[in-house]
C-alpha cells in the first residue's frame, strides 16, 4: 500500500503542475474566460452549480448503467449460445469481428429516425457498443480451455453442463472481465453521444446547452464529470474482478 502511494505521487505531481501552469497562463496572458476558463473558476462552477447539473448527472448514470447491464447480458448470452453451437459460431464469428470495425455510433441518426427521441434509441446505442466487446471476449475465453483439463473433466465423466460450469466458465472469467472493462468505457461514451442527438436530460444535454451559451466553464465541468464517471465505473469493475478472480493474484510459487 505504501509502495503504491510512493509510486503514485509522480503522476499526481505532474497533474498538479499542469493545473498550476494552466491557472498561471490564463492569468498572465489574460485569456478570456469563454475561451479557456482557469481551473479555479471551473472548480467554483463545479461546486456552485451542483444543483443545476445533479439531475442531468443522475439521468446519465441511470441510462449508462441500464444500457450497460442489458449489453453485458446480451453479449454473454450470445457468447454462450454460440459456444454451445459451434457450427453457428463459425458462421457468425467473422461477421462479429468485422462489425467491430464499424463505429456503432454512426448508426445513431438512423436509430433516431426509427425510434424517435425517447429512451429506447439511446439504450439501443449503448447496448450495441457494449455488446460486441463482451461477446467476443467471452467467446474467446470460452474457447481457450486447456485441452488437458478438458480431457480430465471428460474422462472423469463430467456432463456438458458440468464442464461448462466447473471448467469453461471460470476459465473464461478473466477474458470476460477484460471485455467488460472495454464495454464500460464505451457505455459512458455511448450515453453522452446518444444524449447529444436529442434528449431533455443528461450530461450530454447539459454540455450542449453550456457550449451554445459559451459557458465554457460548464463545458469543462461536464467533461470532468464524464471522465470521473468513466473512471468510477472502471474502478468498480476492477474491484469486482479482483473479488471474482482473486486466485489470479495469489501465487508466484511456494518453494519449487
Amino acid at each position: 500500500m505504501t509502495q503504491r502511494f510512493i509510486k503514485g505521487w509522480r503522476p499526481v505531481a505532474v497533474l498538479l503542475l499542469f493545473i498550476l501552469l494552466w491557472e498561471l497562463c490564463s492569468r498572465w496572458f489574460d485569456i478570456p474566460e469563454w475561451l479557456l476558463p482557469p481551473p479555479t473558476l471551473i472548480m467554483e462552477t463545479g461546486i456552485n452549480s451542483w444543483s443545476d447539473y445533479a439531475p442531468h448527472l443522475f439521468s446519465t448514470i441511470r441510462l449508462t448503467f441500464t444500457g450497460f447491464m442489458i449489453g453485458v447480458m446480451f453479449g454473454l448470452l450470445l457468447a454462450v449460445f454460440l459456444h454451445l453451437l459451434p457450427s453457428v459460431r463459425e458462421a457468425l464469428y467473422p461477421l462479429l469481428i468485422l462489425s467491430q470495425n464499424i463505429p456503432i455510433i454512426v448508426l445513431a441518426p438512423l436509430l433516431v429516425i426509427w425510434f424517435g427521441f425517447g429512451a429506447l434509441p439511446k439504450l439501443i446505442i449503448i447496448v450495441l457498443v457494449c455488446f460486441f466487446p463482451i461477446a467476443i471476449a467471452a467467446m474467446d475465453g470460452l474457447r481457450q480451455t486447456n485441452p488437458e483439463w478438458m480431457h480430465y473433466m471428460k474422462m472423469a465423466g463430467a456432463t456438458k453442463g458440468q464442464i461448462f460450469r466447473k471448467l469453461e466458465w471460470p476459465n473464461a472469467l478473466p477474458s470476460i472481465f477484460s471485455g467488460v472493462k472495454i464495454s464500460a468505457a464505451y457505455s459512458v461514451m455511448g450515453a453522452v453521444i446518444s444524449e447529444w442527438l436529442g434528449a431533455n436530460k443528461g450530461i450530454g444535454v447539459y454540455m450542449t446547452l453550456a457550449s451554445s451559451s459559451f459557458r465554457t466553464d460548464r463545458v469543462f465541468v461536464a467533461i470532468f464529470l464524464i471522465m470521473s464517471l468513466s473512471l468510477l465505473f472502471f474502478l468498480l469493475i476492477n474491484l469486482l474482478e479482483n473479488k471474482m478472480t482473486s486466485w489470479q493474484r495469489k501465487g508466484g510459487g511456494a518453494h519449487e
Binding site: 488437458e148 483439463w149 480431457h151 480430465y152 474422462m155 472423469a156
Partner: peptide
C-alpha cells in the same frame, strides 16, 4: 467415460479452485 479415476501427465489442477476444492473435483 467416467469409469476410471485418471491422473493426467501434468497435474491439471484448476487454478481458480483451492487445493480443497481441487481434490474433491
Amino acid at each position: 467415460k467416467g469409469k476410471i479415476s485418471y491422473m493426467p501427465q501434468s497435474p491439471s489442477l484448476l487454478p481458480w479452485r483451492t487445493i480443497m476444492e481441487n481434490v474433491i473435483l
